[in-house]
């Protein structure tokens, strides 16, 4: 049943063309960077900024919009013998999957036809992975918000605020903490703080791939020692998965018992 809903969803998403535009945006940008910048590692580095800013914003806005716009469709389907949990997963994957595919396709295709060395490929792979994780995480948050608030202005507003919070405000708070407690050993608290923001987490994971030499200072060594180990990687991945699980599960629970 999930597959059936997913199929309809995918067809619907494809028909609306914006997903094509989304893919073309990444494709065009990566291609242009290749034409100007040259080697693959540089392209991946430049794309990192875009990925960390555009993806959370696009995913959360599109996610919220999408759920608000398909309200009638959902209500209509729920009149039929469709299980709620099946419908939810169908809806979630129906948006998350095309977004992930559009993004990875858009980024990876230029790497294929421009050709890139093994180092660039690991960078691109890491980029694709982080971008995909951020996509599903923020779609999950958007679904939760859209199901929590029936007022779409409120929902969309909150989506924007959350996005802004994670991309900008959170880092401001970290900087403040670092300044206020400059005389204390901050390595562990800051490491912990970085786990509570999926964008920061993604950024650090990517940084360890790219700007390795800058990070190799004292701070870098701390981060590398942590994220370089199996345990550190497991914790980083674990917290990313937790970031995925918590909002999606929250949205799922709401969807099951929501009075549409």
């Amino acid at each position: 049943m999930i597959a059936k809903i997913l199929k309809y969803q995918l067809r619907d998403v494809m028909r609306s063309k914006w997903i094509i535009a989304y893919a073309l945006f990444f494709l065009g940008l990566t291609d242009i960077l290749f034409r100007f910048g040259g080697d693959g590692v540089r392209v991946a580095t430049s794309m990192m900024n875009v990925v960390l800013i555009v993806i959370p914003l696009a995913s959360i806005i599109l996610g919220a919009f999408y759920l608000y716009n398909t309200r009638e469709y959902i209500e209509m389907l729920l009149c039929h013998p469709v299980k709620r949990h099946q419908l939810f997963w169908g809806m979630f994957l129906g948006l998350g999957l095309p977004l992930v595919l559009a993004f990875t396709g858009g980024v990876m295709v230029p790497f294929i036809y421009h050709g890139a060395g093994p180092e660039a490929w690991t960078a691109a792979g890491m980029l694709a992975f982080t971008g995909s994780m951020l996509t599903v995480i923020f779609v999950g948050i958007a679904y939760y918000l859209a199901l929590r608030f029936d007022d779409r202005i409120k929902g969309l507003g909150l989506a924007l605020v959350i996005c802004l919070f994670f991309t900008v405000i959170y880092d401001g708070i970290i900087l403040l903490v670092i300044y206020m407690f400059a005389n204390y050993p901050l390595e562990k608290p800051v490491l912990a703080l970085s786990l509570f923001n999926p964008i920061d987490l993604g950024r650090i994971l990517l940084l360890l791939q790219f700007d390795i030499s800058a990070l190799m200072g004292l701070t870098g060594a701390v981060f590398r020692d942590f994220f370089g180990t199996v345990l550190g990687m497991a914790i980083a991945l674990g917290s990313l998965l937790l970031w995925l699980f918590v909002p999606v599960y929250g949205g799922f629970r709401r969807f099951l018992y929501k009075d549409f």
Binding site: D171, L175, I178, L186, L218
Partner: peptide, 20 residues
């Protein structure tokens, strides 16, 4: 300059906040 005074701040490298 921030990093020079406070090396821990390096973890915010390439953050949107820092770019602003």
């Amino acid at each position: 300059l921030i990093v020079e005074r406070n090396p821990m701040a390096l973890m915010l490298l390439r953050s949107m906040f820092v770019q602003i």
